[in-house]
Write a protein that binds this DNA or RNA. Structure first.
Lengths: 124, 124
DNA sequence: TTAGTGTATTAAAACAATTAATACAGTTAA
DNA sequence: TTAACTGTATTAATTGTTTTAATACACTAA
């Protein structure tokens, strides 16, 4: 389900958090679907259960999953995922566009660059 | 010139690198302009000269500045800065748009979101 | 009851970032 | 030439964070 990259300098719990979040956002793990148990996932990745637990707690804090003692951890409801997904995406877009403005790109510059890029990305 | 954020979890040398890069991209520090010496900047920020040196070496590796023993460190030529700036910006845009595609947003979704955001950002 | 869940705690180990003290090599101006 | 300034390099010690490890607790389900 996940492959760790030990060349990546980021902490493992952060890698796990981010990769799970992507799988959830892409719909690979569906809303309300059960995630692997903390211990199973730890065995799968050959790391400590505490590290997985930390990733799950991070995701729960952000709203992407919810955990129930004795039952397991589950992806949040579809509406919630959609809400978070859009919110994070708009935030990221806002950041990069503000950055472009700060660097002196005009609104038209950016729109042109983006149209170009969208075409490239969606024609693959 | 730079203010460090000790609540930021990123390493200091990385913060310095990133903040200097932004100042250079914004033109606050002009092409060919001399940067503060490693030791002066270290005193200014109350950190170790080695940490500043590391940031400068990072920026030199990326092409944003060049350092000359005995003389100092200088922002690269205007054309070089422009080249790097555009290249990094396009790369960042490509990443976020690919991400949007992966999450199931259509090209039109993204274009709409971006037009919205550009308007917001440029009307402040 | 038994086996499976998530969670919490504490200590130790491992790793990366930072500091510190020096030293070296080059430039510039008095 | 000398003095003061540059960037760079090295090594050791310190610090903080991440990760592991070993347990324990509380809850659920068959």
């Amino acid at each position: 389900m996940i492959i760790l990259d030990y060349k990546d300098k980021r902490p493992i719990f952060e890698q796990v958090t981010e990769k799970l979040k992507r799988l959830i956002c892409k719909g690979v793990i569906a809303p309300e679907e059960k995630l692997p148990s903390v211990r199973n996932m730890a065995v799968e990745l050959s790391i400590n259960p505490n590290t997985i637990s930390r990733a799950y707690q991070q995701l729960e804090g952000e709203g992407y999953i919810y955990s129930v003692k004795g039952k397991g951890s589950f992806v949040a409801a579809e509406e919630e995922i959609m809400r978070l997904k859009c919110s994070e995406y708009k935030h990221a877009l806002g950041a990069i566009i503000s950055d472009g403005k700060a660097q002196g790109f005009s609104a038209q510059d950016i729109i042109n660059l983006i149209n170009e890029t969208v075409k490239e990305v969606y024609n693959d």
